[in-house]
């Protein structure tokens, strides 16, 4: 059922000209410098307690991907509302439906095989901006909902296995996984999946061990302990990314109105004659 239709217009919507091959704006660091994350050929794991700012960080990266002219979007959100605002500009939006999530990951697995076949045919090891297909950002909010909460053990294991395959093999072919969860311990997602994420972002954690689970062992001993972050300052977290060092960052704030505006614009530029679903 359609409840809203975009107006017919004679003008051609022009995007802001961003590219997923360029670094995405995340926020600012302690020195006041802007923090940009190069998402291409990377995977990012975001952890932290509820309200620590995981979804804010996720929204910034999804916003960059949505406004990029060369990036597809697959959004998987057990809560619906965090990524749901971007649903209209996404290629696939998965709500609290584990079966749909598994089927989507299976589609992406097939896509992975096809793209590797293509790369082998053109004698290359990873994609470039000149290739005839676009990278895809796969944003997952609350992995635990699909891997440890709903469904039976078999389907949870299947979801984790498909996601692990995607993280392990998708990097070179432009399938970027950005996943958020509250505590990525082994009872929530398999250790073999967690350790595949090269880049980490830890918001406030309730214990030192939780901080180390997100960032990796040993960071808390060096003083990068997300337990010591201020829980009343959401969006702040330790980022382990370029150069392998950790730094304190704060994600930029996007209000609901900002997101609706950006998401509508992104949907408009991607599909000017889109009829929005209910």
């Amino acid at each position: 059922m359609s409840i809203a239709t975009l107006p017919a217009t004679s003008t051609v919507p022009v995007g802001p000209g961003l590219s997923i091959f360029e670094p995405a704006f995340l926020g600012a660091d302690e020195s006041g410098r802007r923090v940009d994350l190069s998402l291409m050929w990377r995977n990012l794991l975001i952890g932290g307690t509820p309200g620590s700012g995981k979804s804010v960080a996720l929204s910034n990266l999804v916003a960059h991907a949505a406004l990029s002219y060369d990036c597809g979007l697959v959004l998987i959100d057990g809560k619906q509302v965090e990524l749901g605002l971007w649903a209209d500009c996404a290629d696939v939006f998965v709500g609290p439906d584990q079966g749909h999530a598994i089927r989507t990951l299976q589609r992406l697995q097939t896509l992975t095989d096809n793209r590797y076949t293509y790369l082998r045919a053109v004698d290359r090891r990873k994609i470039t901006p000149a290739d005839p297909f676009d990278p895809i950002l796969i944003a997952i909010d609350e992995i635990a909902y699909f891997s440890a909460t709903v469904g039976d053990k078999k389907s949870q294991d299947l979801f984790s296995a498909l996601l692990r395959d995607l993280v392990a093999r998708g990097r070179a072919i432009g399938l970027i996984v950005v996943a958020a969860t509250q505590r990525p311990s082994s009872d929530i997602i398999p250790t073999s999946l967690r350790d595949l994420f090269a880049w980490r972002l830890a918001g406030y954690c309730s214990t030192e061990s939780s901080s180390d689970i997100v960032l990796g062992r040993g960071w808390a001993q060096r003083g990068f302990n997300a337990e010591q972050l201020d829980p009343d300052n959401p969006g702040t977290g330790y980022l382990v990314a370029e150069s392998g060092t950790a730094r304190l960052v704060k994600s930029a704030y996007l209000s609901d109105e900002d997101i609706r505006h950006l998401a509508s614009w992104a949907a408009y530029t991607r599909r000017p004659h889109l009829t929005l679903p209910a």
Partner: peptide, 14 residues
Amino acid sequence: PLRATVLSHLPDLV
């Protein structure tokens, strides 16, 4: 030093 709200420049791009 990160008490203040960090604003995104993305809404200004469109």
